[in-house]
Design a protein around this nucleic acid. Structure first.
Lengths: 161, 161
DNA sequence: TATTGTTATACTCTATAACTATA
DNA sequence: TATAGTTATAGAGTATAACAATA
């Protein structure tokens, strides 16, 4: 299975573009709101959730994280006053995470620069048809990749024990 | 500047596809050759270089790394016997990094699985025209992103001091 | 027994600044 | 003075396993 130069170019371009864009995004989020990308995604998920609340497990699913890793990030966000944790009403084992007013403000403080950055640095060099093609192709790639078993972060139930 | 749903979809798909693919790649490299992606890239660069040798600075440029970060990785690779460091002949300040035979073997041990993985998980869901479109669009995005000043890793000379 | 979440711990990686040596 | 590279150190993030509490 020899890959063609086109395949090699596409692979490298995806890996490098993804890494570079993420670096820029993290830099912007850190500068404008002292947030990591993970923390930004946690807040963004809470913002879309009913009552700005989700259980820890639901957040971990969305962010593709290990449990303890999410606990770590939740600790950070709680120390900063951006989220609050409370026992869940229905299931006493669960912890409900709620975005605070300060959390919403942090998200809103960061969003305009975020949108600007993406518009300028990602879409700047593209024309409309390019955006359509990119969304089409990468959505299919992402949807496939989501189905591929990954390491510890995804393995909720070890395959064979 | 309201982004269209197409723009949002393209942005999220790129970020997530890039992250998922990188996770899979790192998992494969670790499993097949106990290499991190960075270490893999260092070895790949050395493999293409004349006499399998490059200076530390050239490597840092290629891998987009801070100096001390590269020293750390070089230490690891040297401990594993995959590279060797020697004083440069022309410039006594420089260190020339050379891939050892064990380094080449590690690279070759890892490459088939790497190519298989990418063929299957990245290009599996795509048809040929998709690959062409992806290479075209993402190459332009990457080339633009390369020109954007990033954080510490790139800042060789601080802007204004 | 299984699930939710936390804790303790160790490890990897990255960044900064101070430092040595050479150009 | 500037450049190449290392070192010391500190900090962020992640994974594992053990744990407590609830289902």
């Amino acid at each position: 299975m020899e890959p063609t130069p086109q395949h090699v170019a596409a692979y490298f371009a995806l890996m490098e573009a993804g890494a570079l864009l993420q670096q820029l995004v993290e830099q912007q989020l850190r500068r404008d709101g002292d947030l990591s990308y993970i923390q930004f995604r946690v807040l963004a998920q809470l913002a879309e959730a009913p009552e700005q609340s989700l259980r820890m497990t639901d957040l971990a699913d969305g962010v593709v994280y290990s449990r303890s890793g999410l606990t770590y990030q939740a600790d950070r966000l709680e120390q900063g006053g951006l989220i609050a944790r409370s026992p869940s009403p229905d299931d006493e084992r669960s912890v409900t995470v709620t975005m605070t007013e300060a959390g919403r403000e942090a998200l809103e403080r960061v969003l305009p620069g975020h949108i600007d950055l993406v518009a300028k640095e990602l879409f700047g060099p593209l024309k409309e048809p390019d955006v359509t093609a990119m969304a089409d192709v990468l959505t299919r790639v992402r949807d496939h990749l989501r189905t591929v078993p990954r390491g510890p972060a995804t393995r909720r139930r070890p395959a064979a024990n």
